Structure formats: C-alpha cells, structure tokens
Simulated assay, not measured.
Amino acid sequence: MLNSRHALITGAGAGIGAAIALTLAQAGCRLTLFSRSQDKLQAQAEVLRQQVPDVAVFIAPMDVGDEQSVQVAVQQAQARFGPVNILVNSAGQAQSQPFAKTDAALWHQMINVNLTGTYHCIQAVLSGMLEAANSGTPGRIINIASTAGLKGYAYVSAYVAAKHGVVGLTKALALELARKGVTVNAICPGYTETDIVREAVQNIMAKTGKNEAQAGQALAAGNPQQRLVQAHEVAQSVLWLCAPGSDALNGQAIGIDGGELAG
C-alpha cells in the first residue's frame, strides 16, 4: 500500500508510536524511529524485524525538544532513506498537577515536549517532503494530539494547553500546504492503554488510595464504551490518513475516544 515511503515516527520506542511503527512497516514503509531511549529503539527495531522480516529500519536517539538534536537526526535519516514522506509526531509527556502547583518548569516542559517538539520535527522534514510531493509522492504530517486538544481536563492544564496548541498548529499548517501535495491532520485519542496512562493510574492510586482496578476504571469512565482505547486502534487511523484516496482529509482533528467528544 505504501511501498518504499519513508515514514518517520517520534516516540516510537513504546506505546502508540510503537504500534504505528508496526502498522506502517506492514504497509511497506521504510521506517525511521525516534525516541530518547536507545535501548527502547533497539528493542522495537528487533520486534519489527521479527514481525516484518523485510522491513528497513533506521533508529536515532534524540530529544524532540532540542532543535539541534532533531536537525542532526533528521539529516541522518534522510541520508539513509531520502526525504521523509510521512511524519508522525507521537512523542509526548503528561504530568498532573493542580494549576496552583504548576510551576514554570512543569509548564515549559509540557509545552516543549508536546508542542515545540512537534514544531521542531515538522520544520526539519518539511522542505524535503515538499520536494518529494512536487515530484509526485504525497506528504503526510500526522500529529498525535489528544482529546485534551479538543476539551479541558482538570489538573493537567499545561498538557491541555500544549495539545490545544498542536491542534491549532495542525489546522494552520493544513491551510498553508493544501495546494502543495501535503496534508496535515491530528489524531486525538482518549485515554489509551500506554505507559503514560499506567503512570496516571499509579498517580491516582497514590493520591486517592484507590486500587489499580479502581484507578483504571476512573480513567475509562469518560469513554462511553467504558474502556481504554488501544494503541493499535490509533495506529489504524494513522494508516487510513496515509493510504491512497486520503487526499481530501486535511486539517482534521479526529477523536479516537469511543464517543467521548460526542457528548
């Protein structure tokens, strides 16, 4: 379906990013995997090679919040596989604090990782992506935002602000690139069964005295299906946005949330 397209995925060492990497590998993409952890990247690359034996994978540890780190890693990736055709910005962090206890360090960290990191990666790949699109290979930028980019949640104000910024960036850039062969969309998952949510469960347990099952149910309660979203469900939505025939999907913020945003 996507044979030989170069897909770059941030936050690819685990969770949603890892699920997206597997799905795009199965669709025939050549993959660049970014994460801060070399060990996680190596482990994920091995998993991919076991499940998709002919996959081409390049890994690069880097920090999306560090512009120079991103530029160097993208240059290495493009030297290996050529221009990036698909960029999936999946790297992210979520930390919970009441607003009154949200100090400047936490605020800047949430903005830097979740929003500025997305900006850094788009800036680094865009010129090559546009050149490839002009030659006939369409470009796809997919930002993994959150339902927190479309509604508010208490006690995570910095994260919510950052994810709203990601959705705004998505819409603005989609309009700029609409006639240039590149689409820009955001995927907005609800609570998804990943390390970030497992950390949230531990935080709820520590602060409320609930057991693990009760804490998990508290997070799933906002989903009308009464469950956590699965990472592979988010990955399938990414594949849909990359597949042939998706050209008209542009500037969208798509909720993967069991209907949470419908109410």
Rank of each mutant, 00 (worst) to 15 (best):
224 P>A: 05
8 L>N: 08
8 L>W: 12
218 A>C: 00
195 D>N: 12
90 S>C: 14
211 N>R: 03
76 Q>W: 01
114 N>E: 06
80 R>K: 15
110 M>Y: 03
128 G>M: 01
161 A>L: 08
103 D>H: 10
101 K>Y: 12
246 S>Q: 12
203 N>F: 14
141 I>Q: 07
148 A>W: 06
194 T>W: 05
39 D>N: 10
185 N>D: 09
168 G>E: 06
155 Y>P: 00
252 Q>M: 14
148 A>Y: 04
41 L>M: 03
160 V>K: 02
93 Q>H: 10
32 T>A: 14
193 E>I: 00
147 T>S: 04
94 A>K: 06
149 G>C: 09
146 S>N: 06
254 I>V: 13
89 N>C: 14
203 N>K: 15
235 A>M: 08
189 P>D: 03
200 A>K: 02
7 A>N: 08
169 L>Y: 12
122 I>H: 10
51 Q>D: 05
140 R>K: 15
1 M>A: 14
38 Q>K: 11
210 K>D: 10
8 L>Y: 10
81 F>H: 15
69 S>Q: 02
206 A>N: 13
54 D>E: 15
112 N>W: 01
69 S>W: 13
210 K>F: 09
24 L>Q: 00
154 A>T: 13
232 H>F: 13
239 L>H: 02
193 E>N: 15
99 F>V: 13
215 A>R: 03
38 Q>F: 02
38 Q>G: 00
232 H>Q: 15
4 S>N: 15
88 V>P: 06
231 A>C: 12
71 Q>R: 15
241 L>E: 03
256 I>L: 02
197 V>Q: 06
101 K>I: 00
196 I>P: 05
255 G>Y: 03
218 A>W: 09
249 L>D: 01
31 L>I: 08
82 G>N: 10
77 A>L: 10
237 S>N: 07
261 L>T: 12
202 Q>T: 12
228 L>D: 04
158 A>T: 06
124 A>D: 09
143 N>A: 10
254 I>K: 03
93 Q>S: 14
180 K>I: 00
213 A>G: 04
200 A>I: 01
220 A>S: 12
58 F>I: 00
